[in-house]
């Protein structure tokens, strides 16, 4: 449905999260990642001849909040029927993850390739572990995903966090 009225104010998730953890009396406030300098890499070639990698924060398997999280990859040639994210924070009251393409647009990307808008999909997609530790994300997980993308000849990346 297209929006008819004036846009609503986006939900203030950071403020809500602060208050939620304050109510639980945690002594340390959550620290969100913040980068004063943001890199920008222009497209090197047209989308029509570019290979795209899809990255999600969902998981290939069901996890509990206490299970370890690590970079995993799956096949885009035979994608999973569903992914899992019961251990992540998303609006479980308002919606659900029963429709894979509502959070992992694999079929739509294949259709965009078929239409000629996009050159191709990398053979692997990647599941990025969300971590409290920004050091782990920066030093371990992100470089590993970049390494796998380069191995697959990826030109561009679509990240879809839940």
């Amino acid at each position: 449905m297209l929006m008819a009225d004036a846009p609503s104010r986006p939900v203030p998730y950071m403020e809500r999260t602060r208050r939620y953890y304050e109510a639980q009396a945690f002594d340390k406030a959550y620290v969100w990642a913040h980068f004063p300098e943001v890199p920008f890499i222009p497209l090197e070639k047209p989308l029509e001849v570019s290979t795209l990698a899809l990255i999600t924060t969902a998981s290939l398997y069901d996890r509990t909040p206490m299970d370890p999280r690590e970079v995993t990859s799956g096949s885009t040639l035979e994608p999973p029927v569903r992914l899992f994210a019961n251990d992540l924070s998303w609006d479980k009251n308002a919606t659900h993850l029963e429709d894979l393409n509502s959070y992992f647009p694999i079929e739509h990307l294949k259709d965009l390739v078929a239409s000629g808008r996009l050159g191709g999909l990398a053979e692997r997609f990647h599941c990025a572990p969300t971590s409290y530790s920004q050091r782990q994300t920066l030093a371990t997980d992100a470089p590993e995903i970049l390494r796998r993308c380069r191995e697959d000849g990826v030109d561009i990346v679509l990240l879809v966090p839940l």
């Binding site: 919606t95 659900h96 029963e98």
Partner: peptide, 9 residues
Amino acid sequence: PLGNPCGTP
């Protein structure tokens, strides 16, 4: 809502 960034199910 967080969970379906690509559109409604």
